Amino acid sequence: MARPGLYLVGLLAGIGFTMSIFIATLALQDGNLLSAAKLSCFWPPPWRQSSDWPEEFSTQSA
């Protein structure tokens, strides 16, 4: 991937992340639910495993 394309993907991911936090703040009044929504933006889904990553992105040595 070329460097400009990588910057664009990073910019769009940052906008999407910010909007998800913003919408959660507007939608949820309960502090516990808001905390759970913010944490879920950082936490990977349980079905996602490190073995799903391509070999070049893996941090585990074989």
Rank of each mutant, 00 (worst) to 15 (best):
A37Y: 00
T59M: 08
F22N: 02
T25W: 13
T25D: 13
P4M: 02
L6F: 08
F42Q: 04
D30C: 02
F57C: 08
S51T: 15
F17I: 05
L33G: 05
Y7V: 02
F22C: 03
I23H: 01
W53I: 06
M1R: 05
A13S: 12
A37C: 09
S20T: 12
A36D: 15
I23D: 03
A13K: 05
L26T: 10
Q49I: 09
T18R: 04
G14C: 07
F57Q: 07
P4D: 05
L39G: 13
P4I: 03
P54Y: 09
S61G: 08
S20H: 02
Q29C: 03
S20R: 06
F17A: 09
S61H: 10
G14L: 08
L8A: 12
L28F: 15
A27V: 14
L34C: 02
G10L: 05
A62N: 11
G5W: 04
G10Q: 06
L12Y: 10
A27H: 10
S50F: 13
T18E: 04
A62D: 08
L26F: 14
L6T: 11
G16N: 11
L26Y: 06
G5P: 00
S61T: 10
M1T: 09
P45Q: 14
W53H: 08
L28T: 00
L28S: 01
A24C: 07
L6E: 11
L28E: 00
A13R: 06
A62Q: 10
L8S: 09
I21F: 04
F22A: 10
F22W: 09
Q49K: 15
I23L: 12
T18G: 08
A36I: 08
D30T: 01
G10R: 06
P44S: 15
R3G: 03
P4G: 04
L8C: 05
L34T: 01
L26V: 13
C41H: 13
W47M: 03
D52M: 15
A2K: 06
L8I: 07
S35N: 14
P54W: 10
R48T: 07
L34I: 03
F57V: 06
R3N: 05
S50L: 13
W47K: 04
G16D: 10
M1V: 05
F57R: 11
I15S: 08
S61Q: 10
S58R: 15
G10S: 05
L26S: 13
G31V: 01
I23A: 03
N32W: 09
F42E: 02
A36V: 08
A37I: 00
P46G: 07
D30K: 03
A37M: 00
I15N: 03
W43L: 12
D30M: 01
N32K: 12
